[in-house]
Design a protein around this nucleic acid. Structure first.
Lengths: 118, 118
DNA sequence: CCAATTGTTCAATAACTCTTGAACTAAGGA
DNA sequence: TCCTTAGTTCAAGAGTTATTGAACAATTGG
């Protein structure tokens, strides 16, 4: 029941760059980075289009080695593979996240905070 | 007769990442970086596919703000916009180039050195 | 067991990307 | 002037990507 992930040495630079070259995915990565290593389930960022589309983009990120998805019941806990990416491409993720933070043209880091009781 | 380039503040992160997420263009960038700021004309890297295709990829790089192309007679002198990219996305270009340098799966930094007399 | 919740997979479609050859423009040199 | 050299533009093709709704699987809770 575990989902397929590349291991660290299989992560490819052009694939990672290509995957990050999409505004939706960049926003997802930025959102994950803003949560400082806490894994999150998908429903916390349903701002990113339809359910199907989010699933599609999360699969792209996972298959590229940018994120990790762990199955927890009916949820998938998504986290950034910070350490793996830093080991493979030192400084890359940090500079991308920093650059994304400055860019007002990007979709805002959405994700409603969890509210008990709506 | 000058070709269109974005100015520094128009350079977009997702576009730059998308443009760099192609092995051919990454190889071109890597080649330019290896020449340390010396502008080059196109014919020096005709290893990158057909003439048309090289023109296509160089236009992508230029339009994204990654390279500058200056017209010099019948040649175009191509250079990396290092300073502009560093100003806009600090550390990004360096980490990409460093990462590309380690990746054996990427096309080699070709570009035949200019030989007088074949 | 039945229903609700989470997320994936499938099929379809519109849009975009890469690649090519042929035709073109523009500058330089004999 | 005519030929060559350097690149671009055009038209077309194959292939890929992003997006959607419908149908599906799997877990949790009554």
């Amino acid at each position: 029941m575990t989902l397929p992930h590349p291991n660290t040495d299989q992560i490819s630079l052009p694939i990672v760059l290509g995957v990050l070259g999409d505004p939706t995915r960049l926003a997802i990565v930025r959102y994950l980075a803003s949560k400082q290593g806490v894994p999150l389930n998908c429903s916390q960022f349903l701002n990113f289009g339809s359910k199907t589309n989010l699933s599609y983009h999360l699969a792209k990120l996972r298959e590229a080695g940018v994120t990790r998805a762990e199955v927890a019941g009916t949820n998938r806990m998504i986290s950034l593979r910070r350490a793996d990416l830093d080991a493979r491409f030192p400084g890359l993720l940090d500079s991308v996240i920093a650059a994304a933070g400055d860019d007002p043209a990007l979709p805002a880091v959405g994700g409603h905070d969890i509210e008990v009781h709506a």
